[in-house]
Each structure stands twice: as C-alpha cells, then as structure tokens.
Design a binder for these strands. Structure first.
Length: 207
DNA sequence: CCAATGATTGACT
DNA sequence: GTCAATCATTGGA
C-alpha cells in the first residue's frame, strides 16, 4: 500500500500546509468502494487568530476537533444541507485547519457520479460541499485520522504541482483580504469565486 | 428561550 | 445577475 502523508506534514501553520496539499489525493473508503480526489483548491484558516475561522471565538462542541491534534478531519454541516471537510493543522490548541474546496475525481468516478446523479463530470467535486457529496463525507467522519492506514478517510502525497495561485478566500464574511485560498491555475475543477452575500430578509422576518 | 445566519448549491430571470 | 432551500449552531434576551 502507498504511504500516507505523515502527521508531521500537518504539524505546521495552515497557510503553509494548504499549498502543499494541492495535487495530493484524498481517498474515501466505504463498503461500496473507494473514491479518490486530486486536490486542486484549498483554503487556510488560522483558528484562534483568524476572524473568519469557526474557532475564532474559542472551543465549542462543533469545532472541538480543530483544537485536537493535526492530521484529523473536521467536518461541519452548513446551510441546512451541506457538509464541508477540513484537515486540522498545527499543534493541539491552535485550531488551525485547511478547507478542501475542490478537486478532480481520479478513482471511483462511477460511485461519485451515483452520489451526484445530476452533476457533470467536471462539477463532481468542484466546490467544498460537492466534494463531500461525491466522496460520501458527512458528520460521522469528523475526527477521522487521515494519517492512519485503517481510516475510512486518508490523504496520500501527490507529485509537485506547477502553477499554484493564491487569492482571497471564498464566501467568508470577515478577513476577506487575507490571500489564503490556493488553487491550481487553469484547472477546470477549481470552483468559481463568489463573494460573500448576506442573506436577505424573509417573509417571516417582516411579519 | 429564541432569532439570526452560514467556509453553499442549484434553479431561475 | 437574483433567490430559496433547510437546520445546526451560536449568541444574546
């Protein structure tokens, strides 16, 4: 079996780990089979020192995994319907993490397509919630050790990636100026950039 | 207790 | 370009 990324890889600042994750491969194993994605877009979050991080205001039940050791998955549920996955970085207590935003499916494409039946091949993992859906990642995987060979979610090294670009993070409502989104220039699986738009008032709000 | 909203997506004008 | 879906989590009353 191929060697996984060592835990030391993740024991660094998230903004240092993030570009090194591009080209690496995330594999999800289920009884139905394996699906693997080659990462093409990620975002770094610096935990306690980052206003855009879920961990900015300290440890809660939801973000507890981020305060643990590096090399584990932090999965959260958002907008009432989507999951997103991060990989915890740096030492315990810092709550740094890298959000996995997009990639190219390189194994298990049939299973990924079955999980996302209305998606084109290009869009299978083009976005953080799409990536999770294609790989079958949900809350149950939060805390999974991606450095362990027996884990249902693992990360393997990739070949060095040319053309890494950086820019502001997508969809965040604070610290928009920090250029901690990293992607592979020109890769079709990179998600379209969208600025954060505050939600409008609903009918119930006006009643 | 309760109201607000989100590290998004897909559908639609 | 605009907008609704849909609910866990959060922070404040």
């Amino acid at each position: 079996m191929d060697a996984l990324l060592p835990r030391a890889f993740f024991d660094r600042l998230a903004e240092e780990v993030a570009p090194d994750l591009l080209g690496c491969v995330l594999t999800r194993s289920t009884p139905e089979g394996d699906v693997s994605v080659r990462l093409t877009e990620v975002e770094a979050y610096a935990g306690l020192r980052d206003p855009a991080s879920h961990a900015y205001r300290g440890q809660t039940g939801r973000n507890a995994v981020m305060f643990g050791p590096p090399g584990h998955a932090y999965v959260y549920f958002t907008y009432g319907m989507h999951f997103c996955v991060n990989l915890v970085c740096q030492g315990e207590g810092t709550a740094a993490a890298v959000l996995l935003r997009a990639g190219e499916i390189i194994e298990g494409g049939e299973l990924a397509a079955a999980r996302r039946p209305r998606s084109t091949e290009r869009d299978l993992a083009r976005g953080p919630a799409r990536l999770c859906e294609a790989l079958g990642i949900d809350r149950a995987l939060s805390g999974a050790d991606v450095c362990s060979p027996s884990s249902p979610l693992r990360v393997l090294p990739g070949s060095p990636v040319p053309g890494i670009r950086t820019g502001p993070r997508t969809g965040v409502s604070s610290a928009k100026d920090v250029p901690w989104r990293f992607w592979v220039d020109g890769d079709p699986s990179v998600s379209p950039y969208r600025v954060h738009t505050p939600r409008r008032r609903t009918v119930i709000d006006r009643a």
